[in-house]
Amino acid sequence: MNKVFLVEKMKPGVEMRGYDEEVVVAEEVEAKVRWVMESEGCQALRRRVAAMKDAAAEALKEGGSSHAAFVKFLDDLQAPSGLVRA
């Protein structure tokens, strides 16, 4: 499930052959690391990861979606008798 999400859906990762057999050989790891560091294809990967990083930073800023959700969570914890305020 993680592989599908990271490699196929969000696309910040690359698939390692052998992951489904419980062993990824060192040559496969080396090949993927070299690809990420040296290939032309890695530029798109790096752009996607940078965009995700920027989106996460925005969400965490005051007023961002993650910040707002956390503030609401804290407010809900402080509600008397465990009742959640709307």
Rank of each mutant, 00 (worst) to 15 (best):
Q43Y: 00
R17S: 07
R34L: 05
K32Q: 14
D20L: 14
N2C: 09
E8M: 06
A31T: 00
G41L: 04
V29F: 08
E40K: 09
M10E: 06
R17V: 06
M52V: 08
M1R: 14
A50V: 05
K9L: 07
G41S: 05
R48P: 01
A55N: 12
E15A: 12
G13K: 01
V4T: 07
E40N: 03
A57K: 13
S39V: 00
R17K: 14
V33G: 06
A31L: 08
V23P: 04
D54A: 15
M37W: 14
Y19T: 00
A55D: 13
K11W: 02
G18W: 04
W35F: 12
V4R: 13
R46A: 11
L45P: 00
E30N: 07
V14F: 03
M1T: 12
V29I: 15
N2G: 15
R17G: 08
M10T: 10
V49T: 13
E28T: 11
E38G: 01
S39N: 01
C42I: 00
G41I: 04
Y19W: 14
S39H: 00
E30P: 09
G18V: 02
V7F: 07
V33L: 15
D54Y: 07
V49H: 05
A44K: 06
R46V: 03
E27Y: 07
Q43C: 02
K11D: 01
